[in-house]
């Protein structure tokens, strides 16, 4: 059953539960690229995932990786000021959660995923640590099976994250 969440001054986030049978989990979130949309989309996904009983650490990693991915879409694919839609689907595949993120923004540079080295893997220079460049490092550290394709004028990013349950009683 689709329903829309909205806040004063904020565009709608469409959240659809596509689960068809017990044990299946599929959630689709659609939102327009604009200020604070990433926060609201993340809140919708984390609320949707709440019933799966993820451990606190697993849920924290999911929220962090998704935030990095969706921030990259806002800042690089759409360049912050551009309008466009972002479609995010989360499915449970056995012991993993699979995420598909589709946007209509600019392609990744060179049509490739960034390498995502830690910015100071060669040591921290005298200027101090870099202020940016940690996003893809965190994504690559915490997510598995990351795939990127540019098809039909859209960026399509897929990744998986291990599904760790909260221990009973914790």
């Amino acid at each position: 059953m689709p329903f829309a969440l909205s806040e004063p001054g904020a565009g709608p986030v469409l959240v659809e539960d596509l689960s068809r049978q017990p044990g299946q989990f599929e959630l689709r979130v659609l939102y327009p690229n604009q200020d604070f949309a990433v926060r609201r989309a993340l809140a919708s996904v984390m609320e949707g995932l709440a019933g799966l009983g993820l451990s606190e650490a697993a849920a924290g990693s999911v929220e962090l990786v998704l935030a990095e991915v969706l921030n990259n879409v806002a800042e690089h694919a759409y360049g912050n000021n551009a309008t466009g839609l972002v479609e995010l689907t989360v499915r449970r595949i056995g012991s993993h959660l699979r995420f598909d993120v589709i946007d209509e923004g600019h392609p990744m540079p060179g049509y490739c995923l960034p390498e995502g080295c830690c910015p100071h893997h060669d040591g921290i220079d005298v200027q101090g640590p870099a202020e940016g460049g940690y996003g893809w490092f965190l994504i690559r550290t915490l997510a598995d099976r990351i795939e990127y394709a540019r098809r039909g004028g859209c960026n399509r990013l897929r990744f998986e994250m291990r599904f760790a349950r909260r221990l009973r009683g914790s």
Binding site: L64, A67, N71, E131, G132, Y134
Partner: peptide
């Protein structure tokens, strides 16, 4: 919650 922008 803190992401890489917050860390930066």
């Amino acid at each position: 919650f803190m992401d890489s922008s917050g860390l930066g």
